[in-house]
Amino acid sequence: MTARKPPVNSYHHGSLAPALIAAAEQELSQAGIESFSLRAVAKRAGVSHGAPAHHFDGKNGLLTALAAEGYRRLIDAQNERQKKAQPDPLSQLIASGSGYLDFAMQNQELFRLMLASSLPDRDNEHFSAVSMAAFDKLAVEIRNVLGTDPYTDRVAMTQVMASWSMVHGLAELIISGRTKMPMDFTQMPAAQRDAIFEDILLRALKTN
Score class of each variant (00 low, 15 high):
D57T: 05
E198A: 06
D199W: 06
P189G: 11
P18S: 06
Q82F: 00
S131C: 02
S117G: 12
P189K: 10
A23S: 05
Q78R: 12
N144Q: 12
A204M: 03
G169Y: 04
L62C: 02
K83D: 15
I142N: 07
T186N: 14
I174V: 15
S29F: 00
Q106K: 14
Y100T: 02
R193G: 13
T152R: 13
P87C: 06
H13Q: 12
I174Y: 13
Q108L: 05
A190W: 09
H49N: 08
R44P: 00
M132Q: 14
T64Y: 08
N79I: 03
E80Q: 14
V155L: 09
K43M: 09
A134D: 08
M183W: 08
R72V: 13
S163L: 01
P7N: 09
S165Q: 10
E125V: 10
A65G: 12
S15Q: 09
L205Q: 12
M181D: 13
P52Y: 03
H126R: 12
H54L: 09
Q187C: 14
A24H: 01
A17S: 14
S165E: 06
L201A: 09
V47G: 06
P87E: 00
V155D: 14
S131H: 07
V8L: 08
L205H: 14
H54R: 14
H13S: 09
Y71L: 06
Q192G: 08
D136P: 01
A22E: 10
L16T: 03
L170S: 12
G46M: 01
M183Q: 11
I21E: 11
Q82R: 14
Q108P: 06
